[in-house]
Design a protein around this nucleic acid. Structure first.
Length: 258
DNA sequence: ATGGTTGTTCCACAA
């Protein structure tokens, strides 16, 4: 019964005690981190090794950075999203864990709209769609999880009006999200909780957003059709967000049967 | 309309 979790930790070194405590208690088989905010050599690999994890780290100085941790052996497939050799940002990791392809990703934020950052986001989403298409065509069962930096609908944000000019809600971004899902992928949380409301995964540090429960749902676990059939449960664990020195995101996990 | 917060790095930028 493999347990997979994704968590934008907003600096793995600043978050280390909290993340180690959570990982040691919940013991996910597969753990995907985003925004590790360190170079590969600075990742606290030994601390996670002592919890039983092997690490595949895609680091970058100061910004971004993703990691894939697994309690069972894996084979690295890629440390960059295909489709643009000039893209140097550390936002993508892909590996085979047993017979499942696991992808961890940190999709570009894209703010402010109308800038090169927004164009980069749209291009990145098109490349992600191409990657998903390719895996589906090959019949490879896969999980695609992480911080997607997309607010898919107005139900996924505490105040849609306040986010009308935000990159995360733009019509082009929502169209690309739907194109990705309409390839045949399933939002694991939505499958398990079709009536859920205010299932936020992110609360800003500013303006007392956590205390007032003003959040966004932007962290997702997407499953290819064969894996969606094996989904047992998916949940957002809000507990870590309430701790001292919390990340602004909280973990999302899912369980698949054998 | 503005400011509110956090992390990293260097005195700004990204979120």
């Amino acid at each position: 019964m493999p347990l997979l979790a994704t968590w934008n930790v907003n600096s793995v070194r600043a978050r280390l005690p909290l993340v180690l405590e959570w990982a040691g208690r919940v013991r996910p088989d597969i753990l995907l981190f985003q925004e590790i905010k360190c170079e590969t050599a600075s990742f606290p690999e030994m601390e996670f090794k002592s919890l039983g994890y092997e690490c595949l780290i895609v680091g970058q100085k100061s910004y971004n950075g993703v990691a894939l941790l697994s309690r069972q052996p894996f084979v690295s497939v890629s440390t960059a999203l295909p489709g643009d050799d000039a893209d140097a940002q550390a936002r993508y990791v892909e590996a085979d864990v047993g017979n499942i392809r696991v992808i961890g990703l940190y999709l570009p934020n894209g703010n402010p709209i109308g800038t090169d950052k927004f164009a980069y986001k749209l291009g990145w989403m098109e490349r992600l769609i191409a990657r998903a298409k390719d895996l589906l065509a090959q019949g490879i069962p896969f999980v695609m999880a992480g911080d997607f930096n997309v607010i898919p609908s107005d139900e996924d944000v505490f105040d849609p009006k306040a986010f009308a000019q935000d990159a995360l809600t733009q019509p082009e971004v929502r169209r690309l999200w739907r194109t990705l899902l309409n390839l045949g992928l399933y939002d694991a949380f939505a499958l398990c909780h079709p009536q859920a409301e205010r299932a936020w995964t992110f609360w800003d540090y500013q303006a007392g957003a956590w205390q007032r429960d003003l959040g966004l749902r932007i962290d997702f676990i997407l499953l290819s059709p064969g894996l969606a059939d094996r989904l047992v449960e998916c949940a957002v664990d809000k507990e870590p967000r309430g701790r001292d020195k919390a990340s602004d995101h909280t973990p999302v996990w899912c369980r698949l049967n054998e």
